[in-house]
Simulated scan of single mutants.
Amino acid sequence: MQWTSMIAIYGLFWVLSAFLVLPIGLRTPDQLPGHEVETGHADSAPVNFRPRLVALRATVLAAALSALFYLNWTNGWVTRGDLNFFGDPPVEDLGY
């Protein structure tokens, strides 16, 4: 596998990981004592959003997923044939 392909796969895993870890640890004003909702803000808006922590978590998770993907690529643990849940398509007799 080329290194540029691995960078692209890591980027895809990073974006997926960022969306997966985004809601972890967020708290709304009603979950934290002492916080009040200001005028114009939604009641469900998080009060403790930390983008650096989200990026760090996404980076670690994407690195682990990329490593698993590469190990599967080299060792062949799961192949395309293993994911064929519906069997081979039927062969039509065209009568030629």
Score class of each variant (00 low, 15 high):
Ala58Lys: 09
Pro89Arg: 14
Leu26Lys: 04
Ser17Pro: 03
Leu32Asp: 08
Val47Trp: 00
Ser66Asp: 03
Thr39Cys: 02
Asp82Ala: 09
Phe69Gly: 05
Arg57Asn: 05
Thr28Lys: 15
Ala45Lys: 14
Pro23Gln: 07
Ser66Tyr: 06
Gln31Arg: 11
Leu53Tyr: 00
Asp88Gln: 15
Asp82Glu: 03
Ser17Asn: 01
Leu16His: 01
Ala18Phe: 15
Gln31Leu: 12
Pro89Phe: 02
Gln31Glu: 15
Ser5Arg: 09
Val21Leu: 11
Leu83Ser: 06
Pro51Asp: 05
Trp73Asn: 13
Arg50Phe: 12
Asp88Ser: 12
Phe49Ile: 08
Val21His: 02
Leu22His: 12
Gln31His: 03
Arg80Cys: 06
Gly34Asn: 05
Leu20Glu: 08
His41Met: 13
Met1Ser: 03
Leu71Pro: 00
Ala55Leu: 15
Asp43Gly: 12
Thr28Cys: 05
Leu26Tyr: 01
Ile24Pro: 00
Phe86Ile: 14
Arg80Val: 10
Ala62Cys: 09
Leu65Pro: 00
Ala62Arg: 02
Thr28Gln: 12
Leu22Ala: 14
Gly34Gln: 04
Asp82Thr: 11
Ala18Cys: 13
Val15Gly: 07
Tyr10Met: 08
Tyr70Ala: 13
Ala42Leu: 11
Asn72Leu: 04
Val47Thr: 10
Phe69Tyr: 09
Gly11Pro: 01
Ser66Cys: 08
Pro89Ser: 13
Thr74Asp: 08
Thr28Gly: 06
Val21Gly: 02
Leu61Asp: 01
Pro46Cys: 03
Phe69Val: 09
Phe85Tyr: 14
Asn84Met: 07
Ile7Leu: 09
Pro51Trp: 06
Leu68Asp: 00
Phe86His: 06
Tyr96Gly: 11
Thr79Ala: 09
Ala67Gln: 02
Leu61His: 01
Ser17Met: 07
Ser17Cys: 12
Asp82Leu: 10
Glu38Ile: 03
